[in-house]
Design a protein around this nucleic acid. Structure first.
Lengths: 348, 348
DNA sequence: CTGAAAGCGCTTACAG
DNA sequence: CTGAAAGCGCTTACAG
């Protein structure tokens, strides 16, 4: 009963615990013979290092925290998958925590992770996060932080993101290329950098193309869910029937809006063209299929972990850590919610 | 710099480490006065117990492992959410690991969790898992295991499941009630208990209703993804054009099948009625919307965690642990993929 | 009511 | 090349 300890291996071989410990990790100052002998015995006795003891001794847990707004969400669950797979390869364990986009919850989660003594933290901040003192605190405890997707410019750390301005620009430009003249935008929360940047990209595309930018064509979403898509679509129809294209912040909201338009008998893309954001699976099976911006999620998770890992490694070697910002590429995926209209224009 | 230790509190108050340790946990053999004093000092110095030391001393980590087939999957990501929320409430941390439905990977993940010294394991086994020696090993190390959703009857442990036979029966019965006479079934892997049971429910409903059960009407899915739904639908159309209803093992496969039928100009539900399984969000926004079986996921996660927690607690008190099997209710959600046909029959 | 001591299982400077 | 000793920070039997 009970796990095998170094003590037991030492006893069985008439060696000291010190030597056994070193031999197992192939220290150069242990003879090859001893190393062999010890490793054999360890295997025989099914020795596994006691993680608790190792943690206490080395003051590291090989555990990182991953803080995200929502778990049940195609984008974030793909990120989780990327992080976990990469972590597993490197012997790290991941503690996943959810904030539900709430600032107070986020602060609590960070506190929890500090208490649990993780080696570092990966975070996509909540839309409702208004300051980052909780993250400065993490950094002041000498724990590295890497932000991804939902970042704050106020934190000096490595970041893994996409270029939301460019993506928003391209989405809008596509609508313009399809012949839309009066393009609306469903944006996200004012505090979210993603939303701000996509909105700026939208605005830039309109201005560059000589189309009028009209603030009343911008609809605000807070929760970014299906129902909000329906609501904003309804509002849009009441306000302005001349809109012929919409760039929508997220596929889920876009699907909500499409459902509302379909229910009201409005034809997509003939009457209104729509571009979503994220390239969620959903967007490919909805009718009509949704033109959207493909955004790397799985890859973002992998790169975020590896960025953190490299900082962890450098710190251990007392090397200087340079923060980097990795920008991943996005791509427009053209589908039926804009395609037909494009064809129509070409044939003119 | 550095965390406050008991030592430091003790020094600052001229007390022993022992007394400080006990006071912080309000031991009855410490004077009320001392308790107050110590707690104040602890707060002042921002004391946080060193998890590593506590783990080593108590030989428990307040960490559990959660092993699932796929993270990017509506059902499982909801389970994760339920587990994590419940764990967080109880001061537990969750390590999520994915098997990709692969048996070898599952064995590795379990090994990893044993190495990391989790207090217990929650698992939905992979479809390709053929034996459970790896789980017996966990139990032999005196770690509690709780299985949920994808279980094996060969493991003696607590389980949280749904009644798949009943659910499959009701899904099929609904098709029969809608007037379908020739009902096919898209089933899952032969090794999955869920698939077996849903299939048995399908068979039972047919037999009870005096409809012929024909093995050639049963189509096997292995990966249970969108593409397989398309493939099997295609195969079905080549085989047998007289099928007028299908009960499909999972919403994702059902959506694949529907996409294929629509592409081939086959009307749903007029020509073929379809019932899916899971009540994924997808099923409500697809056109036509999909009739399906609602299966609790978030709740299943919560209950699975609490079942494990109660075993953990009992073990600590050296109480006898009785394994229990919790069966959660399912419900049929009627939508357009069967509804129209039902109306049609009623009007006859 | 308080505290000295042992010990959880490991790693790492240091001595020989 | 090997090992004795200290120590990571805590908890818990035990003594007083």
């Amino acid at each position: 009963m009970g796990r095998t300890t170094l003590q037991q291996i030492a006893l069985s071989l008439n060696l000291s615990v010190t030597t056994v410990s070193k031999a197992l990790r192939s220290y150069p100052d242990v003879s090859e013979k001893t190393i062999q002998k010890v490793k054999e015995a360890a295997k025989l006795l099914n020795y596994k290092p006691n993680t608790f003891a190792v943690n206490l001794r080395t003051q590291e847990s090989k555990t990182i925290g991953l803080v995200i707004p929502e778990i049940v969400h195609q984008f974030f669950s793909s990120v989780i998958k990327g992080v976990i797979e990469e972590a597993e390869k490197n012997g790290y364990v991941v503690i996943v925590l959810q904030t539900s986009q709430d600032f107070e919850t986020e602060k609590k989660r960070i506190e929890f992770l500090i208490d649990k003594q993780v080696d570092g933290i990966l975070i996509a901040i909540a839309d409702q996060t208004v300051d980052c003192f909780h993250l400065y605190e993490v950094q002041s405890m000498d724990l590295p932080v890497v932000m991804f997707d939902k970042i704050s410019k106020s934190v000096s750390c490595s970041k893994v993101i996409i270029d939301d301005i460019k993506a928003g620009y391209e989405a809008t430009k596509h609508l313009i290329d399809c012949g839309c003249k009066n393009i609306a935008h469903f944006r996200g929360p004012l505090t979210s950098q993603n939303s701000i940047d996509r909105y700026l990209g939208y605005k830039k595309a309109l201005e560059e193309s000589g189309l009028k930018f009209d603030e009343s064509n911008v609809y605000h979403c807070i929760k970014m869910n299906f129902e909000e898509g329906q609501e904003q679509a309804q509002k849009l129809l009441q306000n302005n029937r001349s809109v012929d294209g919409i760039f929508i912040n997220t596929d889920m909201v876009a699907v909500g809006a499409m459902t509302e338009f379909k229910a009201q008998g409005i034809k997509i893309p003939e009457e209104i063209s729509i571009v979503g954001f994220g390239n969620w699976f959903l967007s490919s099976v909805i009718t009509p299929s949704l033109t959207t911006i493909d955004q790397p999620s799985y890859t973002m998770g992998k790169i975020a972990f590896n960025t953190l890992l490299s900082e962890l490694t450098k710190r251990k070697k007392n090397e200087h850590v340079e923060h980097e910002t990795v920008i991943l590429p996005t791509e427009i995926i053209e589908r039926e919610s804009t395609l037909a209209r494009k064809k129509f224009n070409i044939s003119l």
